[in-house]
Design a binder for these strands. Sequence first.
DNA 1: CATGAATGAGCCTTCATTCAT
DNA 2: TATGAATGAAGGCTCATTCAT
Lengths: 215, 215, 215, 215
Amino acid sequence: MTAESQESARTTRAERKKQELRREIIDAAFDCFADLGYHATGISDIATKLGIGHGTFYRYFQNKRDIVDHVIDDLVARIVTALTAENAPDAVSTLDAYREQTARIGDALAQIFGEDPRVPRLLLFEAAGIDKAMAARVLDFFELATELTAAYLSHGVELGYLRADLDIENSARAINGMILASAIASLRNPDPDDQRRLSEAVRRMMYDGIAARRD
Amino acid sequence: MTAESQESARTTRAERKKQELRREIIDAAFDCFADLGYHATGISDIATKLGIGHGTFYRYFQNKRDIVDHVIDDLVARIVTALTAENAPDAVSTLDAYREQTARIGDALAQIFGEDPRVPRLLLFEAAGIDKAMAARVLDFFELATELTAAYLSHGVELGYLRADLDIENSARAINGMILASAIASLRNPDPDDQRRLSEAVRRMMYDGIAARRD
Amino acid sequence: MTAESQESARTTRAERKKQELRREIIDAAFDCFADLGYHATGISDIATKLGIGHGTFYRYFQNKRDIVDHVIDDLVARIVTALTAENAPDAVSTLDAYREQTARIGDALAQIFGEDPRVPRLLLFEAAGIDKAMAARVLDFFELATELTAAYLSHGVELGYLRADLDIENSARAINGMILASAIASLRNPDPDDQRRLSEAVRRMMYDGIAARRD
Amino acid sequence: MTAESQESARTTRAERKKQELRREIIDAAFDCFADLGYHATGISDIATKLGIGHGTFYRYFQNKRDIVDHVIDDLVARIVTALTAENAPDAVSTLDAYREQTARIGDALAQIFGEDPRVPRLLLFEAAGIDKAMAARVLDFFELATELTAAYLSHGVELGYLRADLDIENSARAINGMILASAIASLRNPDPDDQRRLSEAVRRMMYDGIAARRD
DNA sequence: CATGAATGAGCCTTCATTCAT
DNA sequence: TATGAATGAAGGCTCATTCAT
């Protein structure tokens, strides 16, 4: 092994350690922000939770505002991944298959929101109140979610299993609103059965509406 | 005019002035909280906006936390009033009348949310991030809204123009989620036409669902 | 009755009322200062206790600092009166009569200090901490007390029933220190029997000292 | 020098510096409280006197109320040390030795009170007026002083050089009252000669009383 | 590179005092 | 004359950020 490769290896290991600590700081910050709220969280809370000096924090992140951006990045990535993984819009071609896909996506979201209420709390209740820029980011996230949902609807309309006159974008917004309602409901009542019932009600709303059958 | 009635008149005028200023402080606080955010707002911002000394603020409200409660009270009252005024759940008895009522309620909400985006911003984006207690209030508000909506649905099921197997409470949550989505959408895009289209999409979701007709 | 005398009578009555209220304010201030302490007492506390507007206070006294001076004046006058009334230094001419006089004075002081612990508390524990000027007044009061006591001692030395080589002024200070100790002790323990025992110990200290008899 | 000992040395140095600054803050606070009074002293006064930022103060003490407790702790410890050092109650066994011991203790107190009038001023004039809790501490201190003095008297009674019928506790209070009078007198008149004369008058009061000899 | 001591901007809050009614 | 609404100086305290060690 040459001196260079040793050098490289050492650097790499140091680099890896650095990345690890960075990750830990983000996770600790997530915990603190979700538990105490952004404003009530001090940098020292995050540092103490990790057992590091709070000066160290500033070697990894510019300032308090910087870290919360990364925490939210993380959150959004996690949710988008759950929404897209194994569930491409064009993977189905019948209404029944679409219904099943909808259910799968719903389950994935319920998984994320339900298993850790700090996720929806931070995203819905904390983030937007931090400042204008973060509020804009939250709106962007909703818009992104609209686009994702709209892609599914769009595909269904093209294949003919969804209404031809569907207002795709706004229907996507409406559907996401119902998902949002689920997330909020889980904050108050984390019971999985109740969450499943709400999920079911959302799906019936989507497919059957609320009106009595006329036939 | 007797001394007594003068006394009474004077007291009344003073009392009225006091109530007026109280009102103005709530309104100014609403402006500040919605524009700058709760945490970025100082008592002095509120006082300056009114041209009063900041000590005066404390003659009308205990502290910063106190005023925001009153601001939110106000907001909730305004919304609940809009939802219930002239629209008792039992005022209609057919699906068509119900659709119209739904539209009226939707318009009233759009009026409130649309005409002043600071209303949804404060309620949805600022309030919950203030502290745990306020987050709980926001959840309570959603629950209250659920109950209001559920009352409409319940009436419709009883009269037979809504599905007999409707999961009333959860459907109410789903519907409110769509309303919430409208409010959020209006934050990004205040265009009344777009809001109307979204409203329409929500109503079609409720009555027709998204699936293509099988006939 | 002439118009003039009516005028005069009315003025006099008004004047009397004014004096009464002034008195009441001083008493209420005494209560507040003794109970809450000078700094913790607000003008509004005094006004509220009397059921008057706190603006009215300023029609009777210049400011907060002004009233406390009057309260202390009052206190000092009460104590000096008790010390001098019926107990002129030259009223006695034998050691036994002097002992009795000492006991009488001691009783009078115990009366004042013992029956209302707020008196010594305000004078000893509150007053001196208010500001430099008041601290000086308290020192002046101690000096005045020294002079009063010294007058008794001086008379005794002249008549020969007290030691000829007595350092009158400093002995007066020492005696007053013992009285002071009694007042302080009464703050901790208001039991009249204990106070009487302490009084007795002070008198024996004065006449017999603490040493065992050599004879 | 190993890395460990370096580490240890550094820690120790930092620790020592910290303790030093803590000490300096207590001393500066003592100065301010004694000169300006507790209420008139701001944290910034203390910080400015030391040339540190006022935020630094809060790294060493909880709040303004906290520091004054430590200042008083310090004062009490200093006085108690002076009273007990080299002057155990059982170190003497004759009246003459006791007289000398009394004189030594008196000198030690005169030293403390006389050389720095801020000591008695803070303890007697400022402390008790701070709040109820501090007033109680001052009373506790007087009680502690009573016990210390009583121990001396008790020993003297046992050995027979003090009166067998001496009311030990109350005589201790009386003696301490005279000491208190000395301290107060030194506030007005710091002349050492005058203080010595007062000291002497106190001792004669203790041993000879004020009455003329009957022989 | 990690640390935590030091900093001070900035906020909330109190309350003595004034003055229009 | 009595009132109490209005005022703003003043001060305690927090905490994000910096930087010497």
